[in-house]
Computed example of a mutant assay.
Amino acid sequence: MEKVPMTSAGFAALGEELKKRQSEDRPRIIEHIAEARSHGDLSENAEYHAAKEEQSHNEGRIAELEDKLARADIIDISKLSGDTIKFGATVTLVDEDTEKKTVWQIVGEVEADAKKGRISITSPLARALIGKKKGSTVEVNAPGGAKAYEITKVEWR
């Protein structure tokens, strides 16, 4: 069984989603199905089919969450340190063309969220950063062409 690396915060977030899907969403969907069933003919009952589809989606996500949580390899970032970039590091980069500063935390695939500044360890940028140190420059092939970044800070938070 392949382990899935994640932070303790990522593990907790997945656990919360699982709990909500099991204790809130599942009973609500079952109630919708029962209500739609009471309306009679199921063959032309759009409400019933929509509720069954929602149930299928919810149960699939529950199974996926249970699998990821069972395979979780929780990495405690508070115990990490040093100036070499690895899983869990929060890295400040400066785009060498635009001078624009960005901050990314390298996390597991299941908790990656670009809007929240978290990139997957499997992403091209994270792969380019792993093993580098503050002051280094990395080049990443982005959809719009190659981008060069200077690493200005490595933190563990």
Rank of each mutant, 00 (worst) to 15 (best):
S56T: 15
S56L: 10
S56V: 00
S56H: 11
S56D: 11
H57W: 09
N58Y: 01
N58P: 05
N58F: 07
N58G: 06
E59C: 00
E59H: 10
E59S: 02
E59P: 00
E59K: 06
E59N: 12
G60F: 01
R61A: 00
R61H: 14
R61S: 01
I62F: 01
I62G: 02
I62K: 02
A63Y: 04
A63I: 03
E64C: 00
E64I: 00
L65E: 01
L65N: 01
L65Y: 07
L65V: 00
E66F: 04
E66C: 08
E66D: 05
D67T: 09
D67K: 15
K68T: 02
K68G: 04
L69D: 09
L69C: 05
L69F: 02
L69N: 10
L69I: 13
A70V: 04
A70F: 07
A70H: 13
R71C: 04
R71Y: 03
R71N: 11
A72R: 06
A72N: 08
A72F: 12
D73W: 10
D73C: 05
D73Q: 15
I74A: 01
I75F: 11
D76P: 02
D76C: 00
D76W: 03
S78V: 06
S78Y: 04
S78C: 03
K79L: 13
K79R: 13
K79M: 09
K79V: 03
L80R: 13
S81K: 12
S81F: 03
S81Q: 14
G82D: 09
G82M: 06
D83F: 05
D83K: 14
D83H: 02
T84V: 15
T84D: 01
I85R: 09
I85F: 09
K86N: 12
K86G: 15
F87G: 05
G88I: 10
G88Y: 10
A89D: 10
A89S: 12
A89C: 11
T90G: 01
V91N: 04
T92D: 11
T92N: 12
T92P: 03
L93S: 06
L93C: 07
L93D: 05
L93Q: 07
L93P: 03
V94P: 00
D95T: 06
D95G: 06
D95E: 14
E96Q: 14
E96L: 15
E96M: 15
E96S: 12
E96I: 11
D97Y: 01
D97W: 02
D97S: 11
D97T: 14
T98M: 04
T98S: 14
E99N: 15
K100D: 09
K100S: 11
K101V: 15
K101M: 09
T102I: 05
T102D: 08
T102F: 07
T102R: 07
V103I: 12
V103M: 08
W104V: 10
W104R: 12
I106Y: 04
V107M: 05
G108E: 02
E109Y: 02
E109R: 09
V110F: 14
V110I: 09
V110W: 10
E111W: 06
A112T: 06
A112W: 10
D113L: 12
D113I: 09
D113P: 10
A114E: 15
A114L: 13
A114N: 14
K115I: 03
G117Q: 09
G117T: 14
G117C: 10
R118N: 14
I119S: 02
I119V: 11
I119H: 02
